[in-house]
Design a protein around this nucleic acid. Structure first.
Lengths: 334, 334
DNA sequence: GAGTATTACGTAAACGTTTACGTTACGCAT
DNA sequence: ATGCGTAACGTAAACGTTTACGTAATACTC
């Protein structure tokens, strides 16, 4: 149906080699043939077939992105960073979810392998040994964004959750909070959960505040998790004056539940979030939060992968600096 | 480098045809050869090359998704619907942005053409005549989600913005609001802007309320647009008791600005949003909003495209029913 | 036991490109 | 006139599959 270079070659009276040369302007033809070929090409409505090209060049100009099963503003920013960059460098992105809790991570990686993506970006999914095996067996450059493994040789790009959490809690302490809760971190998540909890604990200890495990409400990174954490604080009659949340959505869950119970933020309770995702400046009150430069992480991570593809270079892991964005959800006590 | 079916064929002592048959289990071989081929395949770490397959089968099992340049929760839900469905049917999704205001829509479509996607989904971008031309010239099934064109023959899937807006405003009127503002709709956007404005106007008129153009604050669908709209209401000293917003994010902008100015929602002013995106139930107070079933729209739109690919059938446009989700951002007057 | 169906393969072309290599024709220096 | 370099092509193989068609062996039918 669609015209091929053979068709063009026939109509223009040249060989396919020449057509290919002209189309990819590689030189080696005179102006007349160029005009002719271009004209015929336009006339036949020729559109090049990337698949055929990929086959012979053994590269697809494609990068794969695997992300978790959830849709939050968090991922939107990262994705945009990735897509912008790959577009800029002439790559296409093919996207897939890893299933809930990474359940279809193997399938996803296999799929990326069959599609022969030139590079791979994995966002926020926890990889176990067998998954790492599959990953490296693909033999292509890859990077993990906002996650890491327990192995040294898998490159990642990520903020230091421990010290970011520390920063946030320290900030609360310096504003004279002494009974500080924590919400939304999963103690069974060694990558994104444990370090935040540890940062929280350490900050308390460094300032001579005893850690009260009852004030740590585990959960996921979602809104509901914040709601139930706050509910739990209320039921416990916990005298928390502040709560540090493992994500902005969790923080919104806290705020929302406070609202329903006529607890005022920040007058009655202070809240600090994590991520600085889109929602954080939309909340009431605007959320003080630890910023992860999500868009830039996507952008830079993608760039690294493309560079590695083109230069066959290695990708170095990189710890992204975090930053505390002060808005209005924290009140200084007397 | 990577093993091919030729390698398998050689090692297993059979022809490539047989290998192909076994791998795609098409039958026509006995159990022994099957075992043998499978074993060798595993041993060599064979992974099928989708590109080569695509070339001969003239189908890539791929669907393209083009969306706007922005990243909001809105698109996250749609994308997830699309990705879930395509995964389910064995398709991969390749994603690209259309650039700000659809600036790179032609490039995007051309790219999808070169990648030979089997079907195309375009989300929320306005298509002008030349873009429609490019689109149809691809000769593949496609559908527009949350947008449409002025031509009858481009299938879309979308709520009826006019009547959805009407529903929302009617709701406000029935709660005894008489001075109702509108925020965040772009009067130059014939697809998503104008109908909402018209629905708003019509509802007012039907209830004998005079339309005051000063109460219509144009803008985009984003948070900032809501902020400046509210700012404007305040500066105008407009006695609005309620405002209807063109999106949830706009509504949050309104609420946020109200908060800063110590205007209480819903006591002092009622707000209704549009979309029922993730953020709507996270706001304080939870947002009463017009629901678009975003995930389902992605899901169903994708399904339609796949069905059209497989049955070579036509896709019918579909108007999705909307629904008013009542939460707590609207107060009934006396 | 002749004919026919069926099973289990193999052969080779095809998909739409790219590209190494060969070839011609011409210009130019010697 | 000879040799050589170069521009402007063409030829054909290769990329990794699928698949129409052919074929040999076996099983079945009567």
């Amino acid at each position: 149906m669609a015209a091929t270079i053979k068709d063009i070659a026939r109509v223009a009276g040249v060989s396919t080699a020449t057509v290919s040369r002209v189309i990819n302007n590689l030189g080696g033809y005179n102006e007349e043939t160029e005009k002719k070929v271009m004209a015929v090409s336009k006339e036949l409505g020729y559109r090049k077939n990337e698949n055929a090209r990929s086959l012979v060049q053994k590269s697809t100009n494609t990068i794969g992105v695997i992300m978790p099963d959830v849709t939050t503003a968090f991922y939107g920013d990262i994705i945009k960073g990735i897509e912008d960059t790959s577009y800029e460098y002439g790559y296409s992105v093919i996207l897939t979810h890893a299933g809930s809790h990474g359940s279809r991570i193997h399938e996803s990686m296999n799929l990326m392998g069959e599609r022969r993506v030139d590079g791979l970006i994995i966002v926020s999914v926890e990889l176990h040994e067998s998954a790492i095996q599959s990953l490296t067996s693909l033999g292509i450059p890859y990077i993990l964004i906002s996650t890491k493994t327990n192995r040294e040789d898998t490159p990642y790009m990520k903020v230091d959750d421990y010290s970011a959490a520390y920063t946030a809690v320290k900030y609360l302490i310096e504003h004279n909070h002494r009974t500080i809760g924590m919400a939304g971190a999963n103690p069974n998540d060694p990558i994104a959960g444990v370090p935040r909890i540890n940062g929280y604990k350490q900050a308390l200890q460094d300032y001579g505040i005893k850690v009260d495990l009852n004030l740590i409400k585990p959960g996921g990174f979602n809104f509901e998790s914040g709601q139930s954490a706050m509910q739990s604080f209320i039921e416990d009659d916990a005298a928390v004056t502040a709560v540090f949340c493992a994500s902005d959505e969790v923080a919104l869950g806290i705020i929302s539940t406070c609202f329903e119970n006529e607890i005022h933020v920040p007058n009655d309770i202070s809240v600090v979030g994590y991520d600085n995702s889109k929602v954080s400046h939309m909340s009431v009150p605007p959320l003080t939060t630890v910023a992860q430069p999500l868009y830039d992480m996507g952008r830079e991570g993608c760039f690294e992968v493309i560079a590695a593809i083109q230069n066959k270079s290695k990708i170095e892991s990189k710890v992204i600096p975090h930053e505390l964005v002060v808005r209005k959800s924290v009140k200084s006590l007397e």
